[in-house]
Design a binder for these strands. Structure first.
Lengths: 244, 244
DNA sequence: GGTCGAGTTGCACTGACTGCAATGATGACC
DNA sequence: GGTCATCATTGCAGTCAGTGCAACTCGACC
């Protein structure tokens, strides 16, 4: 462990303690996701995760406040980033437009993160498909979504310069958008990841912006589901080239 | 309690066992809601509820699968009813229209039910306001919403004659609608019930149908919040006459 | 090398929830 | 009215999530 001339970059590098913390956090998360993939969310106990990550069960809760959090609460900093973006980005455009763009980016980030964490895309796809069937998991997902929702609403209210107590619009918009987003991910997951996520997300938000006409892009989705790639499509844009 | 000649309607009347079960169920629910109103959702244990309802803790779980269920799972039969309605009502109209009407009715029913269960409207209003602040409660609410969402989606798929595996539209619509509905109730609750629920619901679904334009009825909501009635407005339509 | 403090762990506890087996009330049949 | 099957209630023992507390360990810093 003893290491290395400090050099000019020493200040940049986090202390050993910090690095260890990061490592532990990652180990727990990795172990947890592996186990979830193997057995399904509700058939994994915190004790199992702790054991797999070589920490005490008690330590688990030093890093994540709940079993669900280890799945959803990847990076606490990202929320603030999203918030700032929703408030200040593209001052000219409508709240819905900005929300749409920001959430689409979020989706990309999340998928990319999972991809680099787990290695095998196909595995994630099948795992998520299984996860969607688990009521416990769905509940946790919904709960997490609700939390995000509130934050989005606050950000939108700020952007629009309206009082969240008096103006229901920000909350409505945030809720509807999160609903659509959740549905998108859910559908994508239960398809086993065989649908291009980008297109699906885009079509979904377009439908939202258009008031869900029955002839929207989502409907004639044969072109979405027809593409019979063996490679999970949501991951395509993240692999460096991927053809394979 | 002993009452009344059986008469020709005796066959209609459920057996003693059934009646007792119903009574127990109601007692538990009533006790639970009372306690929730008093102390807040997360400061009430199942044991407390059982004690207040004069049953064994174990019995509680014979009636409700979870602490949350006692709040949300009022009547299991209503779901089927909603389902049928979504599939078959108004064959000409769009899915969104039917969903809108059906959910608006649901809201009315729920509020009416609470009103007749609890007695004092104002109390419910303040309780709900408090409940919205409780993260545990929000989570439970979200989870319950997600379950309903899936059912709505299935019903809509049936109505539209599309396969829920291939067509994301029903799920998207259901999720968005539930999101909007949840936001509506949330906003109404956190206003302490001082806003006309009917109007708010209507404006919300109108916004959904219009793609959330920034100048929709929700925005100029001064007329919604301005009404300074001392009577919680959401309950107005249920009082037998209540002016108007 | 020694001290300080952050991070880890064990322990004991609460609270939700489940399966099982005993008990008690209800309803049906004679 | 008596008997028996049925079904709800209950207690008990156990699992698992999550928390507070008090030792302990080990990296940071002088």
């Amino acid at each position: 462990m003893s290491l290395s001339g400090a050099g000019p970059l020493a200040a940049e590098r986090p202390s050993l303690r910090e690095r260890k913390k990061l490592a532990t956090r990652l180990a727990i998360r990795r172990a947890a996701l592996d186990l979830f993939a193997e057995r399904g969310f509700s058939h994994v106990t915190v004790e199992d995760i702790a054991a797999a990550a070589d920490v005490a069960p008690r330590t688990f809760f030093n890093y994540f406040p709940s079993k669900e959090a280890v799945f959803f609460g990847a990076d606490p900093g990202r929320v603030g980033q999203l918030w700032a973006r929703l408030v200040h980005d593209q001052p000219g455009r409508s709240a819905l437009d900005v929300l749409r763009a920001a959430l689409a980016d979020q989706v990309r980030t999340i998928v990319a993160e999972l991809a680099e964490l787990g290695g095998d895309p196909m595995r994630w796809a099948t795992q998520m498909k299984a996860a969607q069937a688990d009521p416990q998991f769905r509940a946790a997902q919904a709960a997490h979504g609700a939390q995000t929702e509130a934050r989005l609403a606050a950000a939108l209210a700020e952007r629009l310069g309206s009082d969240a107590e008096r103006d229901p619009y920000p909350l409505m918009l945030a809720s509807a958008a999160m609903g659509v987003l959740r549905a998108t991910l859910s559908f994508w997951a239960s398809s086993g990841g065989t649908i291009p996520l980008e297109e699906l997300t885009d079509a979904a938000f377009q439908a939202l912006a258009d008031g869900f006409p029955e002839d929207c892009a989502l409907r004639g989705s044969t072109h979405l589901t027809d593409s019979t790639t063996s490679q999970p499509a949501g991951f395509r844009q993240h692999g460096k080239e991927l053809t394979r």
